[in-house]
């Protein structure tokens, strides 16, 4: 059974149709790559999944319910959407303490996730002084705080060094092996090819293909498949 579902999601900003009747599903224990060129509607779609943007038509469900109807949503869904969603004057630890407080999560988890993302030594520094990679790691710590069964990650590898990218890949694969569903948006196609089980490619707000990665890359590299599918402005 799908744990992440988008059904006919549609969103328009003024005259621009950002997302057009977009549907897909992600199963438990699956890592799905969510790919598309800039302006394809990926971020808007992820935000609709998370209840931050209201769709004009269609709906999205996680575990069968709209995000806004989830009891204790942080316990079910962890999300990394942008690297700047932290108050610059607050320390990493205090940011996580607020999240733990609001979600009713044991404060002992804070040190666990800080250690997991490699931020233990920087935990009591203000976020203002963090690099982009450190902010991404803090975002991941926030997402993992309640050990959720769904992860939604928008460009999580941005700013990470090669070691961090490898660490992220191992983390995602490890979580998926434990049953976590991961939807991951990225432009780093070589990395995506090594990480995901399936790929959803969107263009002009519509899904142009959803298929297992092995099937898509059986005869060509993911990059070539991607460029071939997104070069057609009308979609495939």
């Amino acid at each position: 059974m799908a744990i992440i579902e988008a059904r006919g999601l549609t969103k328009r900003y003024g005259h621009v149709l950002a997302v057009d009747r977009l549907s897909f599903a992600v199963e438990r224990g699956q890592v799905a790559g969510f790919l598309g060129p800039n302006g394809a509607g990926k971020t808007t779609t992820l935000r609709m999944l998370l209840g931050l943007v209201r769709p004009e038509a269609g709906d999205a469900a996680i575990n069968g319910r709209a995000y806004s109807d989830l009891p204790d949503p942080l316990r079910q869904v962890g999300a990394v959407l942008e690297a700047s969603s932290f108050h610059p004057g607050r320390t990493a630890r205090n940011h996580l303490r607020i999240e733990a407080m609001v979600a009713g999560i044991d404060a002992a988890r804070i040190d666990v996730v800080l250690d997991l993302v490699g931020l233990s030594e920087a935990a009591d520094r203000r976020v203002r002084g963090f690099s982009l990679g450190m902010r991404q790691r803090l975002g991941l710590a926030t997402a993992l705080l309640a050990d959720p069964e769904v992860l939604i990650l928008d460009e999580p590898a941005n700013g990470l060094d090669p070691e961090g990218v490898r660490w992220l890949r191992d983390l995602v694969r490890g979580l998926a092996a434990e049953g976590t569903a991961v939807l991951i948006s990225s432009h780093i196609l070589a990395e995506v090819a090594q990480t995901v089980d399936s790929v959803i490619i969107v263009n002009h707000g519509r899904v142009v293909v959803q298929a297992p990665i092995a099937e898509l890359t059986a005869t060509a590299r993911l990059e070539d498949v991607f460029l071939g599918l997104t070069a057609n402005s009308n979609g495939v």
């Binding site: 998370l50 209840g51 931050l52 995000y67 806004s68 989830l70 949503p73 942080l74 869904v77 999300a79 959407l81 942008e82 700047s84 969603s85 932290f86 108050h87 610059p88 999240e99 609001v102 979600a103 926030t142």
Partner: peptide
């Protein structure tokens, strides 16, 4: 301040 520092996303993810 939630909008000035773009923390509204995190806040509304925790409490939709």
């Amino acid at each position: 301040g939630e909008f000035r520092h773009e923390t509204a996303t995190t806040t509304y993810l925790a409490t939709p």
